[in-house]
Structures are given as C-alpha cells and as structure tokens.
Amino acid sequence: MEEKIEKLNSYDWKVRDLFIEDKIETLNKMFQNHGGYFYVAQKKALRDTLLSIIKGKRSLVYTNIRAEYEDLVKKLELETIIKLEKGSVADAKKELFDVDVGILEPDAIAAESGSIVLFDFDGTKSFVAFLPEIFIAVAEESAIFDTVPEALGNLIKKYSKMPATIQIVNGPSRTGDIENKIVRPSHGPKDAYLFLVK
C-alpha cells in the first residue's frame, strides 16, 4: 500500500494535459517559443496560408504526405515541384542544393516540448526537413503525444523496427556563437511552420 501511495505522489500530474485543446495550447506556446510558426487550420484555409508562404518562391520538395495534401501541393504554382521518395530523384543532392520550400507530414508531435518527430528510413524526410529555406510540417491531431519519449515509444511499436534515423526538430536553425547574438537561419531552415489540420 505504501508503495502505491509513493507511486501516486511521484507522478507529476501537472506535466500531462488532459484535454486535446490543452495539448494544442501547450504545443502552440512551445513551438512559437522555438521561433517557429504554429497554425490550427481547416483544410481549405491550409491552401490559402500555403499560398501566402510560398509567394515569390521558385522550388518545393515534399515527401510522406497523404493524397489529399499531395493534390493541394501539386497545384501550387511553382517552377519546380519535386516528390522525394525512394528511387524518385536520381541526384537529389543536385536538385535540392538551394530548394526554397520543404513539406512533409511528421510521424509525431510532442506537445510538451513543441517537437516535430520524424522516423526516417531512407533519408527522404531528413532531406526535406534540413535543406530548404522554409520547412513546413502538416500534421493531424492524431499525431500529437504529450512527450518525446511517449511519441518514440508509440512509433517504435507501430513500425516494430528502428528507422535509420530519428530526427527531433524544435523550430528553425539558429546560432548564438558570436557574442551571444541569436541569428536565424544558420545551416538549416530559416522558417519552420507547423500546421495542425482539422
């Protein structure tokens, strides 16, 4: 009995948000805190916001997005749109050297730390998340977990094997190496957007 009480006492009730609305609120706060932009969007509004982000941009690369978003992305008026999947682009490196926008659907989101979690088996997700100037993640509510460890536990169970890499992304790249002055971007994206689609 004593042991049980101790367990209850040691459980941190404050950390866990009980309702999805609270989780989204935490996620919003944390992702903006990282210097990223967070939107909760209806499917129609997603298109309009994407259009305003890609205005004036030339090229886009995407991977791992469901058919309905793929249709939307394909219809965006850009000079180059590349779908990155195993075997799709012979020399992806050359094509992606100065690509403007990258879009993917993340495997999970951790609300408490505002993290985008990617399970990457073939390198495509890492390329899309790291190389473009603007990185956009489009997620559904079902991808939200409380913490990174919880998200990882669930994904390992889902895939029943480890991917080549797991990438955890907290906002756009930055450096403070010269006199502690924060500058974005450094080597990765300048802007990071996280869309939660209803």
């Binding site: 195993k86 075997g87 088996f121 990174v148 080549a164 890499t165 992304v169 907290n170 790249s173």
Partner: peptide, 18 residues
C-alpha cells in the same frame, strides 16, 4: 538551452539518400 533545435538519433545508414 531551453531546447536545442535538433536532436539526431542515428541507428544505421540510410538505404537510399544519405
């Protein structure tokens, strides 16, 4: 650092890019 921007967990070589 409240958070670092990237946490990389590397398990193996990629079977396509990288």
């Amino acid at each position: 650092f409240e958070y670092t921007t990237y946490v990389h967990i590397i398990n193996g070589p990629y079977d396509f890019y990288g």
